[in-house]
Amino acid sequence: MIPWIHLDTGPIPGEETPLRLMQRGEQFSIFVGPTELMSNRLHASEKALATLICGRLRDRPRVRILIGGLGMGFTLRAALDALGPDATIVVAELVPAVATWARGPLAHLFDGSLDDPRVDLRVDDVGRQIRAAPGQYDAILLDVDNGPGGLMRAENDRLYGLEGLSQARTALRADGILGIWSQGPDAAFTTRLKRSGYTVEEERVRAHGSGGRRHVLWLATRPASGAKPSSGASRGTRPADRGRRR
C-alpha cells in the first residue's frame, strides 16, 4: 500500500487539534486527529450542495451567495459552473492554511477558480460573515464540520442552533436558501430548521457511486414576507448527485 505523506499542518483558531494535509499517491485528504474530513476521491455530494441550490437561482439577476468552508474547492467550482457572469460568491474559510493550500499543493484541484472575478475569498469565521450581512444573500451554503454535530470545532455548533439559524435567515433575501451538508440524518436539527421559520427539504445523497452510505443535504428556504412556511419533503438520491468526499 502507498504510504501517507504529511504535507502540512494548519492550526484551527481556538482549537488544540490542527488540520493535517496528507497525500497518498494522487489522493489528497485533510484530517483532524484520526478523522478524515475531506478527500479529492469522494466529492459528488459536496458539488451537489451547490448544483441543487444554484440551479434554483439561475434566473435571478446578480445572485450573491456565501459558502462557508473552502475545503478542496468542489462546492465553489460547482457554484461557478452553475451561476452567471454577474454573480458574486463570497467564500469564508476559517483556517488560513486551507486558503494557502488552495494555491499550493491543492492548486490543481481548484483549477484557477480562486482567480475568477466572481469570487471573494475571506479568511474569516462564516458566522461573523453571516451576522455582518443582513438581507445580502440569495443563498448560504454551509459545508462546515461534519454537519450539525460539531466534530472539528465546538464553536461550529452555534451555526446550527436556533440563534445561528435565525442569524442565517436574517442574512438571506426573500426566498433565499440555506443549504447544509451533514454526514447523516438529524431529526432534531430538521425540527430546529422548521422552528426557525424555514421551508425544509431533505436530499439523501450516496456517499460513493451507486453504493455506500447516504449523506444528507438540507435545503431550507426563507419564505417571502407573508408566506407560510411548509414542512417540505424528504427525497431520495438523485443519480447525478451521488457520492461524497468522506
Rank of each mutant, 00 (worst) to 15 (best):
I180P: 11
D175K: 12
I180Q: 11
D186H: 15
D125W: 10
L70N: 13
V90K: 12
L70R: 14
G150N: 13
I180K: 10
Q183I: 06
I89Q: 00
R153S: 13
F74M: 09
M152L: 12
G161H: 13
G84T: 00
W181T: 09
R153E: 04
G73R: 10
E163K: 12
H108I: 00
L165S: 03
D111F: 00
K194C: 00
V91Q: 10
I180Y: 13
E155I: 05
G164C: 10
A154H: 10
A154G: 09
P96T: 15
P185F: 02
G135N: 02
G197M: 08
E155H: 11
R118F: 03
S196Q: 06
V126S: 03
R118I: 02
G149T: 15
A97W: 03
E163Y: 08
P105K: 02
I180H: 11
R131Q: 15
G127M: 04
D116V: 01
I180M: 05
D138N: 14
V119A: 03
M152Q: 09
D175H: 12
V95E: 12
T170F: 02
D143S: 08
P85H: 01
T191V: 12
G69D: 07
E93T: 13
T88V: 07
R173D: 01
L121H: 09
D120M: 10
D145M: 07
R153A: 14
D157H: 13
G184C: 05
L94M: 10
I130N: 02
S113V: 12
E155L: 12
V91A: 11
L83F: 01
G161N: 14
A187L: 13
A154W: 04
G69W: 03
Q183L: 13
W101Q: 04
F110Y: 15
R153N: 15
N146H: 15
R128F: 01
A78K: 03
G161E: 12
D111A: 15
T191G: 10
D186C: 13
H108V: 00
L193N: 06
Q136S: 15
G147D: 11
V98D: 06
G179N: 08
G179C: 08
A99D: 06
A168P: 01
L141W: 06
L114M: 01
I130R: 09
V119G: 08
D124S: 09
L159Q: 11
T191L: 14
V90T: 15
A132T: 11
G71P: 02
R118E: 04
L142T: 08
I89W: 00
I140Y: 01
A102E: 03
T88Q: 14
F110N: 07
I180S: 09
V126P: 03
G147Y: 06
G147K: 04
A174N: 15
G112P: 10
E163P: 00
M152G: 07
A99Y: 05
G112C: 08
G112L: 09
L94R: 12
P96H: 15
V126H: 05
L106R: 06
Q183K: 04
M72Y: 07
V126Y: 07
V98F: 11
G69T: 13
L142S: 06
D186A: 12
V98H: 06
V91T: 08
G69S: 08
L172C: 04
A99R: 09
V119T: 11
V95Q: 10
V98W: 03
D111W: 00
G164A: 12
L172I: 04
R118A: 05
A99P: 02
M72A: 10
L141K: 10
V119Q: 06
A107W: 05
L94E: 08
F110Q: 09
